[in-house]
Amino acid sequence: MADFIQALLGHYNNWAFILLLMIGFYAMIAKNNLIKKVIGMSIFQTAIILFYVSMAVKKNSTIPILDHGHGAVEHAIDVAAYASPLPHVLMLTAIVVGVATLGVALAIIQKIHRTYDTIEEDEIMEIIAQ
């Protein structure tokens, strides 16, 4: 039991991102309003970004910048003292992708609104069915 709680708490970042992921997923699948779907999509994507960023966290580590300049003394690099920068860099790209997707989604919703005069899914389905 103690182990289980340990596992539960030790990976709290995982639980947080899974929770967000599920909220987003639910909104994308179950919401009727298209804008709400898109909000869900954003939450979904953000959860993944959180997951990546949190995986880079390392206790007692600092930003990965080597201070060789300004007359500082050369010293041996202790890798463990630096956080991995890669996940952050990756997520910069993922954020860009997310924003682009969001933009396209909003543009399409705008078009849908112009065509059907509604952004409620059931009403659109009704119009299409006619």
Binding site: M28, L34, K37
Partner: peptide
């Protein structure tokens, strides 16, 4: 119906890509 169909695709496509990313 292209807009609506594309929107559905967008949602599905994003889910797919996100799973891959995970």
């Amino acid at each position: 119906r292209a807009y609506y169909a594309t929107f559905k695709y967008l949602i599905m496509g994003t889910i797919g890509a996100s799973f891959y990313l995970l």
